[in-house]
Amino acid sequence: MEVKDISIKNMKTEDFKDNAYLEKYVEELRQGGVNVVVGVLDDIINWGRSNSVWPLTFATSCCGIEFMCVGAARTDFARFGWEVTRNSPRQADVIFVAGTIVHKMAPVLKRLYDQMAEPKYVIAVGGCAISGGPFIDSYHVVKGVDQIIPVDVYVPGCPPRPDAMLYGMMQLQRKIKVENFFKLPNKPNREKETSDESSTTQSK
């Protein structure tokens, strides 16, 4: 499957940025070729997963307000089937890290992530979650949540507009759509551990 085939309704592939990155990602995933049956099953599973991503209600600061706006009437993320916000991490699929993560909050965020069931995704929303943002000089701010948990999509902005968050969500959908279910999970943190193993088991 090429990136061109990853369809998002009403959005052309050219409209997305970072296609090169996704292409590389797909190439890595498809190194051993794809079994036809498995490929079709993968497609069905990924269709389900990518269209039903339930976010955890998690917000620490300013970006949380914009996250509320995404859920509100103007930019309604229910259109993508994302509006089932779960309050229990056990039932959520994606965590929007909306806002600054400070030292005291870091273990809490990590625990939340650990409590989520696979497959789980992380979207880092806003400058603070990406790198510490305007608070990078602070003694108490974690400089990017990717120090604590693996991040799938970064949405820059301070705070990002709701449209930007929608775009980030669609990028995550595209990323989910190329996943291989019948292989070890493709999470960045697991990749390191399983890189040797996966090269041998990939071609099943």
Partner: peptide
Amino acid sequence: GYIHRGIEKMCET
């Protein structure tokens, strides 16, 4: 303190 960002200290610089 779960969102204490040390803004006042940052202001000093």
